[in-house]
Each structure stands twice: as C-alpha cells, then as structure tokens.
Nucleic acid binder design. Structure first.
Lengths: 258, 258
DNA sequence: CCGGCCAAGTTGGCTGTGCAACTTCCCTGA
DNA sequence: TCAGGGAAGTTGCACAGCCAACTTGGCCGG
C-alpha cells in the first residue's frame, strides 16, 4: 500500500503491462526511429526474460493504440508517436484537463429528480416508472467556458451525486470511492445547434454550432451508470481515434432521429 | 475454393474468427439476452472443439467491439447489440453507403498535382520538394450532396488516382487492385466553418458549420497512402466509438492550430 | 543486368498446462 | 434475520512448444 499508482501501466503488477509500458516509452522517445523496425518477438522475449506469448500480449496493446503495425512475415514497424489517453482521462473532464496542465472548473447549474422518459429508460435500461437524476453543468478551462454537460444518472448513482457539494470539481472520483466504477463507454459524436441554455452558458448565439459528444457509460457488470451529453464550443476540442484492419471500434452512422 | 467470401469473418480460415463470428451472431440475435451471461470459456471451448486459448482470442474480438464485458471471477455479460462496421466501410464512402442500402454518388471537382506544403510532407512523410496529388470531390447519397472530400495522395498513389476515369464512384477498390492497401487509419473529428467552395458544393451558407473528419491512412508497411479531410453537412452523419478500461484508442484533444 | 527461385527470418495461430485473483452463492452460526 | 466464512466456479496471466503463412534478401542462372 506504500507506492501510489503514478504510472498506471508500470505499477500494475502484470508482466505484459510492464513490457508494454517500457516499449511504449522506448517508441515514443524515438529509440526505434519513425518508421523504424522493432526487434523480433523472440529477441524481446529474451531481453525482458519473459515468454514470447507475453511479449505478444504487450505488443497487442501497442498495436491497438496505433503505435506499431503488425503483419506476418516481417518485423513490426513504428507507426507514429500516437499519444493515447487513459480511459479515465476520456471520461472525466477533470482528469483530462489536469493531464494537459490546464485548470478545470465547473458550476452545477441545476440538479433535478424526475421520472425517466422513454429514451432515458432505454439508455439506462430502467423499467417504466423509474426516476432519474439530471444534472446540467458548465465546465471551464482556466476560467473560460468550453462545454455544457447534461448528464442523466440512474437512481442508485444519482442519489450519490445529489449529495455531493455543488462546487465539487470532479464527480467521477467521489463516485469511485463509493464503489461506482466506469469501465465501458459508447461515444457518439456529431454537430448540433445551441439552444437557449447553451447560448446563455457558453456565451454564444442561439443556433450556433456545437460539437456534441453523447456517451453512455457502464460498470463492470454491464449496468449503465451514466448517460451524458456534452456540447463543446467549436475550436476548443477535437476527438481522435485510431483503428485498423485488425481491430476497429469506430463506426460512421447516418443520423436518424435525435 | 467453392464458397465465396460472403461473411468476411466466417470465411477467413482461422478458428478464432469463426468462433467470434458465430458468437457475435448468437449475441446480436439475442440468444443470450440483453445483459445475459455467456457460457464459461471452458464450456465454449468444448462446444466448439477448440482450446480455451482460441476461445479467449475470439472473445477478445467481441470485447474490443463492445459486445461483451470481461472481468476476472465471473462470466462475461452481454453489453449491447453494438453493430460495428468493418474497416473498409469506414474508409470508403462507397462501401459505407452501399452497406446502408443507399446509392452513393460522387463528382470529381478538381485534381491537381503540385509541390507538397510543410503540413502535407509531415503527414505523408515526404521529403522536401516532393509532389502530391490533391483531389476535391463532392459526394452524394441518393443524389443529394452530403460531404466534400479533399484528399492528398503521395506520388505513387496519386499517379494511379489520376488515371482513373473522372466518374468512377469508388476509389479504394481500384487502388486495391493495383496493390495499394489500407490497413491503419488515424481519425480526428471536429467542427469547422464552410468556406466558399464548401458552400457552393454543399448548398449551404459560407461560414455555416460542418462536421469535419481528418484521416491519415497507412499501408501495412506503415507508409502513408492518403491524407483526407471530409466535411459533412450537419445532420447527415455521426461517428460512434466504443472504448473500455481494457483498451481505448480514442482520445480528446484541445484544438491547437489547424 | 534482370528475373526468378530458395532459404532464412518473422509473425500468426493453436494447443496444453498450471496457477493466481476474483466473484458468487450457499451454508453456517450468532 | 443477518453477517461471515468458505467452497466452487470463472477469468486473467504466464509459460512452452509446434507448425503454417508470409516477407525479405541474396544467390543463381539466363
């Protein structure tokens, strides 16, 4: 219990994560060059004193992150210095801002408890008649507004959120301490026009375009714990995704309904 | 050689892909129910007559697609009926449109060959003085314009593109037949204002918002083969991504520069 | 000089084994 | 009735080995 998790990769006691972390650092620091070739799996296995299977597991992580290619018959090639964020940096505005060295801020505009509508029951997998907690927050970077966040929580989670002080910055952290875990998320990204609330909070005109990210998050057991809709001012953020023939979790949809 | 590749998953002759395809179908058809629990790895292994390792490999595919959870100590749980698209559906507007049953169209507005600027050399990893081929295309769904596509090709690829007839619908298909393969892509999604060309082609006002997807694609050897910038009319498309604590290839960036 | 063949190197795929970590559920005892 | 302990079940992690498929580069012959 003495050492705190500074580098989540390396601190976790599994071999393949340590190897992956070490290789990632070697790659991003340029040890193998841009478009350079990695040592063979066997060589790496000997170098790290692990089995080839473990090396392969580590390399699978890097491949999924888009750092290296992988094809039969030839050595792996360095693709780029892709800086992939951890899952928590993606889910938590606070984590994300801090990891960039920016000062995150937030203000809770409203928190209401009301019956869930059909869409919310669908997303959060609730039975008819269930209630939800809905929050509206303005989020700032170094004091300037960048995003409006509307989040719908199921009762179990909402009760905890409602008890948090209104000026708390991060919500995922206290939730985690209460045993609410976030492990899987589905994101949908598109453009939407600002409504009256958006315009007032963000200081833009009504109808002006915002980058919208809708996100449904579930816990390890597959139970939805959050359904959120974030609206960013244009020019403040962009979303990056890597995918490959081997694995792709990205998809492009025709927009239908809302 | 008799059976043609209808289902890419099942036709490929590897065991774990076949198992993955079979499980995917069972899940999406609801055999295990929403939020239902999958059989144990050992049971699946026996059922399919393969080793547990192969089953695990298959399940890793489904987990990456966001279909099932995965944690130590308990059975896997069905997450949702996530319909993940194949890589080619993501890269090729034509493939994507056809997979939705829509009729894709396109018009080549311009094709020029000129020296690459600094950003293009950076993206396509070209040496100073290299030339590139730049295309501007209007893409339509069932006749109505939805997207403007600006693509920059390195010389090797551009020469092939330049020889294609101007009215060809798909470009990835003929390129593949010439040995140009697409295997990895980095996507960045944000909002941008329409310039004069965008407005004229898409029939919107200058300055009105467009959903922009920038994409750099590389071949199996890691060599960039395409750098494209697609601008969609709002309301026509949305992008979906799944990620989890186990693997995330998504990231959120502060926008800097262009 | 060029083309094709061949051997060496390398990754993909599959099996089998063993153990550790964790969850779930039942049963016991207070 | 409820809390706690423990056993069974399940997945994660690691090792070792074997073969197939594929790429690369060099050698040889024309």
């Amino acid at each position: 219990m003495t050492d705190v998790a500074v580098d989540p990769d390396r601190s976790v006691g599994t071999l393949y994560r340590k190897v992956a972390a070490d290789l990632r650092e070697a790659i991003t620091s340029g040890s193998y060059g841009e478009a350079g070739r990695l040592p063979a799996e066997g060589a790496l296995a000997e170098q790290y004193g692990v089995s080839r299977g473990t090396v392969r597991q580590a390399l699978a992580v890097l491949r999924a992150d888009g750092l290296v290619t992988s094809r039969r018959g030839t050595r792996r090639v360095v693709l780029g210095n892709a800086r992939v964020q951890s899952f928590s940096e993606l889910l938590s505005f606070t984590h994300w801002a801090r990891s960039m060295g920016e000062e995150p801020g937030g203000r809770l505009e409203s928190l209401v408890r009301r019956p869930a509508d059909a869409a919310e029951r669908e997303q959060l997998r609730l039975e008819p008649g269930a209630e939800v907690y809905v929050t509206l927050r303005l989020r700032t970077l170094s004091g300037i507004p960048v995003m409006v966040e509307r989040t719908v929580y199921p009762p179990k989670v909402g009760e905890l959120v409602a008890q948090l002080p209104a000026d708390v910055v991060s919500h995922t952290e206290p939730l985690r301490e209460h045993g609410i875990l976030f492990t899987d998320a589905d994101h949908t990204i598109d453009v939407v026009a600002a409504n009256a609330d958006d315009a007032r909070l963000l200081g833009c005109r009504r109808g002006s375009p915002l980058l919208r990210e809708r996100r449904r998050t579930t816990d390890p057991t597959g139970i939805p714990v959050e359904w959120s809709q974030d609206r960013y001012l244009p020019g403040t953020v962009a979303f990056s995704i890597h995918n490959s023939l081997a694995s792709s979790a990205l998809s492009r949809h025709a927009r239908e309904g809302d």
